[in-house]
């Protein structure tokens, strides 16, 4: 576990296809938290996230030879995981007309950050954001998770979601619009979003410009 494996993702995948029994596990070990984050944020449910992720990675294991190197390995893995999550959400919708039970405690508990601080405030907000995301359309959420949360470029997200960059932009845009009232509510602010200047920022104590967000993304991409 502690030993560093210097092989690149692509090399690991090649060696997995070539028969190396441990290469794929190493690949998964490397990216598991990131993939888990995407799965949990996309499905909004730890159980679904876990099932979708497992199904996706077993599928990736079996069809690794179909990876042609035209994308990054992580993009390919994300594509399989996100598709698996969206499939699961569709199935969940067709199997139940009953609203899913609120299980905020569980979600909070399972949304443990992999590093750094875990104050009550941030974990509460994290759960609020997850809950708000679950109230918007699946496709919009999947796009927002990749672009706004995971910091993927629109082009990369388009590759993962197998749609055009324009579609990704549009889903993100409409998704953000849906989230405005939801996140205002979660911040405990009673004012309607359009009536008070900076209502969300005031509640969250965080303001950002396009530039600031972009800078963050760039930083996270490195």
């Amino acid at each position: 576990m502690t030993g560093q494996d210097d092989r690149s993702d692509a090399a690991l995948l090649r060696e997995h296809v070539g028969g190396d029994p441990d290469a794929f596990s190493e690949l998964v070990r490397r990216h598991r938290d990131r993939l888990w984050s995407v799965a949990l944020r996309t499905t909004g449910d730890p159980e679904d996230a876990s099932d979708a992720l497992q199904e996706a990675l077993i599928s990736a294991f079996r069809r690794a030879e179909s990876f042609r190197g035209e994308a990054q390995v992580t993009t390919w893995l994300h594509r399989i995981v996100v598709n698996s999550c969206l499939d699961r959400l569709r199935r969940r919708k067709t199997r139940s007309t009953v609203p899913l039970p609120e299980d905020d405690d569980r979600t909070t508990e399972l949304s443990v950050p992999s590093t750094a601080e875990n104050t009550a405030e941030t974990s509460e907000r994290r759960a609020d954001v997850l809950a708000a995301l679950m109230q918007i359309n699946d496709d919009q959420r999947a796009a927002l998770v990749l672009v706004d949360m995971e910091g993927y470029s629109v082009e990369e997200a388009a590759e993962i979601l197998e749609c055009s960059p324009g579609t990704v932009k549009s889903r993100c845009s409409r998704g953000r619009a849906r989230l405005v009232p939801l996140l205002t509510h979660y911040r405990g602010n009673q004012h309607p979003p359009r009536s008070v200047e900076g209502s969300v920022a005031a509640a969250v104590g965080h303001a950002a410009t396009d530039q600031g967000t972009k800078a963050r993304k760039d930083q996270r991409r490195v």
Partner: peptide, 10 residues
Amino acid sequence: SLDEVEAILA
């Protein structure tokens, strides 16, 4: 507020 939503997500 739209920018802020983006910032909250980020």
